[in-house]
Design a protein around this nucleic acid. Structure first.
Lengths: 135, 135
DNA sequence: TAATATGCTTGCAAAATGCAAGCAAATATA
DNA sequence: TATATTTGCTTGCATTTTGCAAGCATATTA
């Protein structure tokens, strides 16, 4: 989206202020997904054309990268940039919010607790777990 | 938006996953706005029909309340519920992100620094400053 | 060599957004 | 007291975005 103002909140929303972009980043961070088909199979069932356009935009905006898979030439490997990884704290706060207000949340209690009281370590562990999947 | 899954991130996006809702909460928290016309005059210039529909939805979703103004019967007073206030940490993380990646951000350095290293106190101060405006 | 998997694109209908104008009730002004 | 202005919206319409379904080229597997 074109920049609406210099407000730091508005700015983030210009990048990921829609229903899908953060879910793609979530899948890359929390579920270790890397390919198009994996991303397509999330619980929320994003339409394939929307997924395609979001991936394009996230790449253009520097939040993810897209490479060819060396083993399977049909596949592409999607990965987070540092800017994309740095969206994680925003997501953790969302997890905390839902932990408080959504009785039906599927967030594990332990994750919510750690987001509250062991943030920094949780963040490094989650990001390290990505590294191990992107050798 | 209708609930797409039980994911805690998806859940928050179901409430505020659009370009405008969080900016309304921002204006209520950071700028102490309370009336329709004040909300209409943000830098991002939201269309009035969109503002109207978002306020309606935020109220229905329990993130804000709408009362009549006792002094001026034309006016309505919009205020945050606790659930709305609890979106603040999410916004603070957005401020931190923009502080790192947006060279043109208008976020005061002191705010960014405090969001990083003095969060809890910053949160209470911001929320208290709202109280004083909603006596 | 045929079947299947993968990562998309295309076409179209439906929904959401954005713009401009208008409008009733309350208040301020002359 | 009459008129103008402010406030908080609504309405109508054009544009953009989303969602659904089908299709398609290339690469891999059977």
């Amino acid at each position: 989206m074109t920049r609406r103002s210099n407000c730091p909140i508005s700015n983030v929303l210009d990048f990921v202020g829609d229903k899908w972009s953060l879910l793609i980043l979530r899948d890359l961070i929390f579920f270790g997904k890397r390919s198009y088909s994996e991303l397509q199979n999330s619980d929320e069932r994003m339409a394939t054309n929307i997924l395609s356009s979001r991936l394009e935009r996230l790449e253009k905006d520097g939040l993810i990268t897209k490479r060819a898979d060396v083993n399977d030439k049909r596949k592409k490997v999607y990965a987070l940039t540092q800017a994309g990884k740095d969206m994680l704290p925003i997501m953790l706060e969302m997890i905390i919010w839902s932990g408080k207000y959504d009785p039906a949340t599927n967030a594990p209690e332990q994750l919510i607790d750690r987001a509250k009281s062991d943030r920094e370590k949780l963040i490094s562990e989650l990001l390290e777990s990505i590294e191990s999947k992107h050798p």
